[in-house]
Structure formats: structure tokens, C-alpha cells
Design a binder for these strands. Structure first.
Lengths: 144, 144
DNA sequence: ATAGCTGCAAATGCTTTGCAAGGCC
DNA sequence: GGCCTTGCAAAGCATTTGCAGCTAT
């Protein structure tokens, strides 16, 4: 868990005012492991930890964090925005049944050949989403 | 452009009742080239062509088409669902400025190495989204 | 002091749903 | 005839916004 000083430093680094609420969210988000959350999930977690913060502020903060480049958004489900604290180029497993999102490092998932890019355009981002489902025969011992 | 008979055949093939509205949408969607549309865009196009159909029906129809496996949905922008008439495994260019979505065939974009799949899960779908933006120096002649 | 945040509630935008009327087999 | 589909309007859900009051610099 980040302490307050580090949270404040992180926010000042990207020219965002370190308000109580942003510090709280920063402490929750930037731990050792990367996190994938929706605004709603982050809000619940903040409330659970005893912080006083409104959902609208969580949305505002996440959008500022995104503009500042310290989180990025991931689209895997219609009508829902996930935010990812891993801003390095990387990819995802997505488990639809549970809504779980897992990081796949750029090294683990190399692209052999990119297509020809349309004229006058440049690549901004390449994202691979690997959608998973529970195996039909999860237990090999039960097979005939 | 598909004729009515082919549209009806297509719908019967997937056990969907060939109603006037579904036939109209089928005729618009399944042309020679693959299409990427939102429900709203498809509705406008249908109205423009003189068909009488409500937006709710377009949503309903697209969801049935998706269940039937003749279109699939693509998520590239928050709060918007694109439908793609190409149901083969393939990938996409996405141009954020214009909202344009372009197909990239599976052959043009090969993955060299997939990561290790978590135990008890199997891969359902692998999607690559290549986000493009206009090049800063679109005209090479203007360079120093 | 002042520019920028917060929180509430209201608004928005896309999508879904309930239900009565109409259409397909 | 019976079941499915349509269309409208209303509901739903995630997200954004307006504005008054508060806070960091």
C-alpha cells in the first residue's frame, strides 16, 4: 500500500492537485500489483476503506488520471469502462463469466507481422484481447 | 446488394423469421463488402433507403443476428457497440478521429507466441485492435 | 485570492424492456 | 390460432455535467 507522501508525489508529478479524495484513490490504485477496476468498483473499495468520496468524483478523478497518463482504459464489455494501472504496452486475458481482467505482458504475446498501415496514419496502440471461457472438461481424470 | 430471396434464405438458415424489417436489415448488412455499424447508423441507413423500421427493432434484430452468429460485436469506443458482418476470426484498425473501423484479415496479422493460458480455461477468441491516428507529418514534401 | 475540486442531483446517451397491436407459419 | 415480432414509450444503466460551496496553492 502506498503511503500518503508517495501518493502526493505521484499526483504532483503529473500536475494534479493532491486533494484528499485523489490521494485516497491513488493509495488504492497504485499498489505493487496492477489493478483493473471500474469506477463503481473503485468507489465501493474506497467507501469500504472508510474514505468519504462520491461516485462522481471517482469518475472525474479517473478521467484526469487517464488524461495524465497514469491509468488507461480498457474496453472489453459493452457499456462498461475498465481502468488499468498498467500503462506500459501490454495485453489482456478477459474472462467473461467473472468479468475478470488479467494482464499479459508484451513479451508473452508477440505479433509476428503487422498489416500494412493505411497511408497517412500511424499506429497509436496495439491491443490484444484474449477472451477465455471455462474448459468443458476441466477435470482430465473424468475423460473416457 | 442482396435480393429478397437471398435475404429470406439467409434468415431461414439461422431459424429467424423473415419479417419485413429483418429482410430490410439483412439486405443492407450482407453485401459484398463487410460492414461495421452501430444500431443507430444501421437505423438511419434503413430509413434513408425508405424502409419503415424503429430503432428498437434494429437493436432487437442485431441482438438476434448476434445470437445466431451472423454478426459479431466489436468494442472500440466506450458506450457504443459496433456490429461486424465478418464473423471469421480477424482483427481491426480503428481510427478514433472518425470512428472508422477497418478489417484486418487473420493472415495479415499473425501472433508469434501466445502466453500460457490459465488452467481450466480455453481460448474463445483472440482480437487485435490497432488504433490509428493521423500522422503528424502527413505530407513528406513539407519536411525539412 | 483564486483557480480548481467536490458532491449532489439532474441530465445525457446508448441500450433494453413491457405491452398492445400486428404479422408469419 | 398461436407464437413471435414490431413499435412506441418508459425504464435502465453507466457516465457526464451544472452549479454552489469548499480547498489547495
Amino acid at each position: 500500500m502506498l503511503n500518503c507522501l508517495k501518493a502526493i508525489a505521484l499526483l504532483k508529478n503529473v500536475a494534479l492537485r493532491p486533494t484528499k479524495q485523489r490521494i485516497a484513490l491513488t493509495k488504492i490504485l497504485f499498489q505493487d500489483n496492477y489493478l483493473h477496476v471500474t469506477a463503481e468498483q473503485l468507489h465501493s473499495e474506497a467507501i469500504r476503506k472508510g474514505y468519504k468520496i462520491s461516485l462522481a468524483t471517482v469518475y472525474n478523478a479517473l478521467n484526469r488520471f487517464k488524461e495524465a497518463g497514469i491509468v488507461k482504459q480498457v474496453l472489453v464489455e459493452p457499456g462498461k469502462i475498465y481502468f488499468d494501472t498498467n500503462t506500459e504496452p501490454h495485453h489482456h486475458f478477459y474472462i467473461e463469466e467473472t468479468g475478470e481482467l488479467l494482464d499479459v505482458s508484451d513479451d508473452e504475446c508477440k505479433i509476428a507481422s503487422l498489416p500494412i498501415i493505411p497511408a497517412e496514419y500511424t499506429v497509436n496502440q496495439v491491443e490484444i484481447t484474449i477472451r477465455l471461457e471455462k474448459s468443458k472438461d476441466a477435470d482430465p481424470r473424468s475423460r473416457n
